[in-house]
Design a protein around this nucleic acid. Structure first.
Lengths: 256, 256
DNA sequence: TCTTTCGTATTGACTATCAATACGATCGAA
DNA sequence: TTCGATCGTATTGATAGTCAATACGAAAGA
């Protein structure tokens, strides 16, 4: 959300309220009652009632199958499908990523940058994966992901500093790098190598190598991730094998 | 959308307008100008301006990278992620589907029913697939898909007739069954077999077998699809190999 | 250079939205 | 079984938010 206030002449507050209702599910794991929706979205019960009624009618919210509480509605899938289907990089990248998945025999993902986080837009599993590793739309912090760091490598020092300072730099495993000098070093390393490597920083046992995709102006617009298990790979072997493949695939997709 | 009019005391028309804007992208393949959005969504230019301004501010709409026209925004991915992450069947099915994908070495999908169409909620590719075969949120007509027919098999004759009559029964290939007696026969066959098989009805060269997942009351809540290429399988071999696997996986996910 | 189409800006009218509150239903605890 | 808490639904007049016609500058195309 931009820092400056929206223009009240054009900004439709009722629309914002409706999306605030949808957004409360972003941090929940179970259906929400009307009262919970009202509280979590910062509106009174009447407001929540009207927004929920409208969103239910449109299919973007649904009543839980047990008849109590609200859950996100199926029509949301249509809207994200439109996003994916119409996104030029997702269109161009999916086929090469399938080739890369076949070549590497490991999980291959495409992420898009969004300020302090990256969003997974294409997920091509290779073996048995965790549930979280299969879902498009999943976000990870830019600072803590190999894709995020690979993309930061194409940003200026000031931009990198800005992102790192505004990030909630919490460790996910004992291996997660969270100190500022360490993170800067990781970005510097990614600049030198042309890719970023994260070993057990998000999930124990998981190793991920990522390379950034850039636009004509050299700005990062996405990243290719190759993920595998340390039970099957030694770190240096993985790096040696995957780095050229990831960088070549990213290069082929860069520049327009 | 339900047939009866919404209660004007609770229905927020501005919210509907915002979603009408998002929905116009459902049938487009390129960015839309403000004027095009206005026309396609049936509102005047001022209305389109206000809705687009608001949706851009919230991140659900974006200006195309070339600076002209609107496209669906990244934040939509968050909302569908909430839907997938919180959907009980998607949660329960993803792991067994990965097992099934490993066993069959073919593409495995999970679809959800939505009146006249089915929506793909989980897509586990095995080999090189078409772009369309990788995207969650993609819809196919219930009548023309093996998953749709497998689910129709658990509906009453009246319900099946109702769906078929309201469907836009167009052929996708020369093999697509579109006549009512033929479609009824397909549903009857699925009832007898416990699965549905579609041979080249959506894409030439593609064969798909699907089994329905039902709830405690025996109503269909999803379908498992196994898809492959006729260049690698003979129809009867595919049926023999995959039918038991699909039905067993569907049965394990049914009933709760 | 001119025309067309674009997106932006404006502002008073007015109606769509608001929100406090009452109420019946349901659920859980005693 | 009774009672209290919480649920979702229903209400309605006030008013703030939304509307929409239109003007205008910018950009693109002929």
């Amino acid at each position: 959300m931009p820092a400056e206030d929206p223009d009240p002449r054009l900004y439709v507050q009722a629309v914002e309220k409706a999306f605030r209702v949808l957004e409360v599910f972003g941090s929940r794991h179970h259906p929400l009652s009307l009262a919970e929706v009202a509280e979590a979205s910062g509106m009174d019960k009447s407001g929540a009632q009207r927004m929920c009624y409208t969103l239910r009618r449109l299919g973007y919210l649904a009543v839980d199958v047990h008849g109590r509480g609200h859950v996100p509605g199926l029509r949301l899938m249509d809207r994200s499908y439109d996003f994916l289907r119409m996104h030029p990089l997702v269109q161009r990248a999916t086929s090469p990523l399938m080739d890369l998945r076949r070549t590497t025999q490991e999980r291959v993902d495409l992420s898009l940058p969004d300020d302090l986080s990256i969003i997974y837009a294409v997920r091509l599993q290779s073996k048995r994966e965790t549930f979280a590793a299969t879902l498009v739309g999943r976000r990870l912090p830019t600072f803590a992901s190999s894709g995020g760091r690979a993309m930061l490598a194409y940003r200026s020092d000031e931009e990198v500093e800005n992102v790192l300072l505004r990030s909630d730099r919490r460790a996910m495993t004992s291996k997660t790098v969270v100190d500022l000098p360490g993170l800067h070093a990781k970005v510097t390393e990614a600049r030198a190598l042309g890719y970023a490597l994260a070993v057990e920083e998000w999930f124990l046992g998981e190793i991920v190598l990522a390379a950034a995709i850039t636009d004509e102006a050299g700005r990062p617009v996405g990243a290719i991730h190759i993920a595998a298990s340390l039970s099957e790979w030694e770190v240096e072997e993985f790096r040696k094998r995957m780095a050229p493949l990831a960088m070549e695939a990213a290069r082929a997709l860069s520049g327009g």
